[in-house]
Design a binder for these strands. Structure first.
Lengths: 342, 342
DNA sequence: CGGGGGCGTGAGAACGCTCTCACGGCCGTG
DNA sequence: CACGGCCGTGAGAGCGTTCTCACGCCCCCG
C-alpha cells in the first residue's frame, strides 16, 4: 500500500529483545519499570521498543499476573433513561477521575434485560476485569449474587434493598432529606408535602424516610395526603404536584426527592399562580445542573460525588488486592445548597 | 466460612478433564461446540463443567485465538453532555441489539480529555478488543489515526470532517435537511429560516447544506440573515430563535437542526405570540423522544438508528474477519415524520 | 477376509508474557 | 589476598487455552 510495510501482527517481547541485544527477561524488566536494569540496557530496550512501536500483549500478561488492570461499571438498568440521568454522568466522570492517577482502565457495560445481564455476567466472570462496580437503581438483579458467588470483587453504587453481604457506597439520602425538611421547618413552613421517589428504589425510600423523620421529630403528625409518589422524572414531578395541590391546597412547602421532579413541580406551581418561595417553598435533591437553571434556582441537597466515587474505587481495589477485611460499606454525607426556591 | 469450601481461583480445563475422565482437548472441543465428540464424552464433560462451575479463561483463549470477542464503543467527547443525548442512548441500544445474536460483547469507553483519550488508546492497542466504533461528535482527535496506524479495525459513527481513509456510517443529514426544507416549501412557506448546528460538527454542516440546497433548487436566494448557529441544546435553540425573530420578524418557517433546539425555539415562538404552525412552521431533526411531547408535537426528520448500528457492526466485523475489501462507508436514508408543527 | 476411510480421542507444541532461580562479576570487608 | 554479598543478567518453567497431528477403532466395501 504505502511505503511503510504493514505487519500483520504486533511485535513481541522476543523481537524487542533481539533488536536490543538483551534477553526477554530484561525487556520485561524495562517495560515494567523494574529498578534492576543497567542504564545502558534500559536505553537499548527503550530504543528497540520505540523502533518497533511495541505494545505489550495484555492477554499474555494477564494470563500470568492474573490481573487485567481493568474494572467494569455495569449499568443494570432496564430502560435507557439512566444515560440521561446527570447523576450517572457524574459517577462516570468521578470514577474516571479517581482512576486517572492509576493505570487502571474503566469500561462501561450496559445490561438492559435479563439476556444482556447474563452476557455481562459472563464477560465479567471470564476474567476480563478485576472488579465490578454495579449501578442498578432498581432492585432484584441476579448479577450481584452471581458475582459474589464467583468471588469477583464487587462494590454497589447505592445501598441495596436487602442486607446482602456486599460492599456498597451511598449518599446519606435519609440525612439529606432530613436536612431539607428541617430547613423548611426552620423557615416557618407549616404544611410540608413531599413528592417521593419510586418505592422500589432505595434512594426514593430513604429520602421519604428522612422527610418523615424530620417531621415526626418536630412533632408533626404523619399525613398521608401530603405524600405523592413520583418517578424521578420532570413529567412525573409535574403530575405529582398537581395531585398534591388537589389534595392539599393549603400546603406551603414541598420537599421533592429529585431535581428534575422539582422542576416539574415548579412549573405546575407557576401555572397554578403560586409564587415560589413566597407561597410555596420547594427543595429538591441531587443538585443536578438543571437546579441552577430553574426559575427560581432550586434549593437542593447535594451529594459528595467526588468522595463517593473515590471511596468506591478504594473499596474495590482493596478487594482486588485482597487487603479488604470483611464487607465494607460507606455512607457519604449530603449537604443542603441554599438557592432561591426555599 | 460457610459450608461450601471457597476456592481461591477458578477451575481450569485440566481439572475438568480429570473429573470427566477425558483429555484437555476433548473438554476444549465440548466447550467450543465442536461436532467431533461422542455423546458420552460430551455428557461427561458437561457434567464436570457444571459441577466445577467452570468458566473458560478468556485471557488464555485470546492468547491463542488472537480474538477477544469484544468490541469497544469509544466516546471521545469532552463534556459529559453526550450521555444526556438521547441519540447516544439509541446508538448503544442499537449496537447491543445488533450483537445480541452473537457472543460478542460491547464495552463503552469514555475519553473526555487528551489524557483519557490516550488511556483509551492504550487499552485498545493492548489487545483488549477486536475492534472499535468511535463516536466523536467534534473533530480532531488523534485517536482515529492512532488506531488506523495500529491496524485496529475501526468504524466511525458519523462522517469525519476530513476525508481520511476510514470506514464510517452516517445518516443522510443533508438529504434529511433537504426533505424538511422541501416540505416547508411545499407548504407554501416563503421565508424559511434555519437554526443550524455548530460549525465544527459534521451533522451541523450537512444539515445546513441540505437546507441551502433545497432553497437554492427552489430558486430562493441565500439570505445570511435567516441562518443562526445553535449548539444542539434547548437553551441554544431558544437564543437562536430570539435572534432570528429579531433579524427577520417576517419569517414564516424554521428548519431547526435538532429537536432539543426546536423545542427551545417553540418556547420562544410561543412567548412571542406566534402560533405554530399557523404563523410559523417548525421542523426539527432527530426524532428525539422530546419531539413527541412538545407542544405542538414536532414534525421532524428521523434517522434509521437500527439500520445504522447494524451496518456499523457489519462493517466492523468485516474488518475483524479481514473480509473487508477497502474502506467502506455508508450513508443511511433519513425520513420526514409529519406531526403537528409543520 | 483385508484394506481404506472416516471419527473420536489424546499428546504436545504453541501463544506472549512474568517470575523464579542460578550464575558470573564486582565491590567491600576481614 | 580471600571470601561473602549484591547486582545485573539470562535460561527456563509456567499461566490456561487452542490447534495440529497422529493414532487407534470401527465400519463399509471390494
Amino acid at each position: 500500500m504505502t511505503g511503510t510495510s504493514t505487519r500483520v501482527s504486533s511485535p513481541t517481547l522476543d523481537e524487542v529483545a533481539v533488536l536490543a541485544g538483551v534477553s526477554r527477561a530484561t525487556v520485561s524488566r524495562v517495560v515494567n519499570d523494574s529498578p534492576r536494569v543497567s542504564p545502558e540496557a534500559r536505553e537499548a530496550v527503550r530504543a528497540a521498543v520505540a523502533a518497533l512501536s511495541y505494545v505489550p500483549n495484555r492477554m499474555a500478561r494477564s494470563l500470568v499476573t492474573r490481573r487485567t488492570d481493568t474494572i467494569a461499571l455495569v449499568l443494570s438498568e432496564p430502560d435507557a433513561r439512566i444515560f440521561s440521568d446527570p447523576f450517572f454522568a457524574s459517577i462516570v466522570r468521578g470514577l474516571n477521575g479517581a482512576l486517572a492517577s492509576t493505570d487502571i482502565n474503566l469500561v462501561l457495560l450496559t445490561a438492559r434485560d435479563e439476556r444482556e445481564q447474563e452476557k455481562a455476567g459472563r464477560f465479567v466472570r471470564q476474567g476480563h476485569v478485576d472488579g465490578v462496580i454495579l449501578m442498578s437503581l432498581h432492585s432484584h438483579d441476579v448479577l450481584p449474587d452471581e458475582l459474589i458467588a464467583a468471588g469477583m470483587p464487587l462494590v454497589l453504587c447505592g445501598r441495596p434493598l436487602d442486607d446482602r453481604p456486599v460492599a456498597w457506597v451511598d449518599a446519606d439520602n435519609c440525612g439529606g432529606a432530613r436536612l431539607a425538611t428541617e430547613h423548611l421547618l426552620a423557615d416557618g413552613r407549616r404544611t410540608i408535602a413531599s413528592i417521593s421517589g419510586p418505592r422500589d428504589m432505595v434512594a426514593g425510600l430513604d429520602r421519604l424516610a428522612g422527610y418523615r423523620a424530620a417531621l415526626s421529630d418536630a412533632g408533626h403528625e404523619a399525613d398521608p395526603r401530603l405524600v405523592v409518589e413520583g418517578d424521578f422524572t420532570e413529567g412525573g414531578g409535574a403530575r405529582a404536584m398537581e395531585e398534591l395541590l388537589d389534595r392539599a391546597p393549603e400546603l406551603d412547602a414541598v420537599f421533592v426527592a429529585s431535581d428534575p421532579m422539582a422542576v416539574g413541580a415548579l412549573r405546575v406551581l407557576h401555572a397554578a399562580g403560586r409564587s415560589v418561595p413566597g407561597d410555596v417553598a420547594v427543595v429538591g435533591f441531587d443538585d443536578a445542573p438543571v437546579a441552577l437553571r430553574s426559575d427560581p434556582p432550586l434549593t437542593t441537597v447535594t451529594q459528595p460525588l467526588e468522595e463517593m466515587t473515590q471511596v468506591m474505587i478504594e473499596l474495590l481495589l482493596a478487594q482486588v488486592d485482597r487487603t479488604a477485611d470483611g464487607v465494607q460499606t460507606r455512607v457519604c454525607p449530603t449537604r443542603l445548597v441554599r438557592r432561591a426556591s426555599a
